[in-house]
Simulated assay, not measured.
Amino acid sequence: MIVRIMGEGQVKLDDAHFTELNKLDDELLAEMESGDETGFRRTLGALLEAVRRMGTPLPDDALEPSELILPSPDATLGEVREMLGDDGLIPG
């Protein structure tokens, strides 16, 4: 799967990693619902770091269709709330 982190670029991520990412996504969703800004900031950072660590960066000149778009590390709680689907940021 091709994942885009807004403002950074794209990474190719194996589907096997989505169990770990979904756990972080669930935690992020709970923190957003409770208005926990500190927890939200920490978990968003952990989610993006996990994608960077587990994924393989695509070259800057590659323009692959992104199947998943994640917010930038400095996105606000409100901006991320607007990006959410029924399953959070990561489907499944």
Results as ranks from 00 to 15, higher is better:
residue 69 I to Y: 05
residue 30 A to C: 02
residue 88 G to A: 11
residue 49 E to Q: 05
residue 79 E to N: 10
residue 33 E to Q: 15
residue 31 E to T: 04
residue 51 V to I: 07
residue 20 E to T: 05
residue 36 D to K: 04
residue 12 K to V: 09
residue 2 I to M: 03
residue 71 P to W: 06
residue 80 V to C: 00
residue 45 G to F: 08
residue 83 M to T: 07
residue 11 V to Q: 03
residue 31 E to M: 09
residue 61 D to L: 04
residue 89 L to S: 07
residue 68 L to S: 09
residue 74 D to C: 08
residue 69 I to D: 03
residue 65 P to M: 11
residue 84 L to F: 13
residue 21 L to K: 01
residue 25 D to G: 10
residue 43 T to A: 04
residue 26 D to E: 13
residue 14 D to C: 00
residue 87 D to I: 04
residue 35 G to L: 08
residue 88 G to Q: 09
residue 63 L to Q: 15
residue 73 P to H: 12
residue 40 F to D: 11
residue 89 L to R: 12
residue 18 F to V: 06
residue 8 E to F: 10
residue 42 R to P: 00
residue 38 T to C: 00
residue 70 L to H: 10
residue 38 T to L: 06
residue 67 E to L: 02
residue 21 L to N: 00
residue 5 I to N: 10
residue 55 G to M: 01
residue 17 H to K: 05
residue 1 M to S: 14
residue 41 R to Q: 07
residue 92 G to F: 06
residue 10 Q to P: 02
residue 57 P to L: 10
residue 69 I to C: 11
residue 30 A to K: 06
residue 54 M to R: 14
residue 5 I to Y: 04
residue 75 A to E: 12
residue 42 R to E: 10
residue 12 K to T: 14
residue 81 R to A: 13
residue 28 L to Y: 04
residue 15 D to Y: 05
residue 22 N to F: 02
residue 35 G to A: 08
residue 84 L to S: 10
residue 68 L to N: 10
residue 71 P to M: 06
residue 41 R to C: 01
residue 75 A to F: 13
residue 10 Q to F: 09
residue 1 M to F: 09
residue 8 E to L: 12
residue 31 E to K: 09
residue 87 D to E: 15
residue 39 G to Q: 14
residue 25 D to H: 08
residue 89 L to F: 01
residue 9 G to Y: 02
residue 26 D to L: 13
residue 78 G to W: 07
residue 64 E to H: 06
residue 2 I to C: 04
residue 7 G to T: 12
residue 69 I to Q: 10
residue 14 D to V: 10
residue 74 D to I: 15
residue 8 E to D: 06
residue 30 A to S: 11
residue 7 G to N: 05
residue 23 K to Y: 10
residue 48 L to V: 12
residue 87 D to W: 13
residue 73 P to R: 15
residue 9 G to D: 03
residue 67 E to K: 05
residue 67 E to V: 00
residue 49 E to V: 06
residue 18 F to T: 14
residue 81 R to W: 08
residue 60 D to T: 11
residue 75 A to D: 09
residue 13 L to W: 07
residue 18 F to S: 00
residue 82 E to W: 02
residue 58 L to K: 12
residue 92 G to D: 03
residue 77 L to P: 05
residue 54 M to E: 05
residue 5 I to W: 02
residue 20 E to K: 08
residue 49 E to W: 02
residue 60 D to F: 07
residue 33 E to V: 09
residue 48 L to G: 02
residue 17 H to C: 00
residue 31 E to F: 14
residue 7 G to I: 09
residue 22 N to R: 13
residue 12 K to W: 12
residue 57 P to V: 08
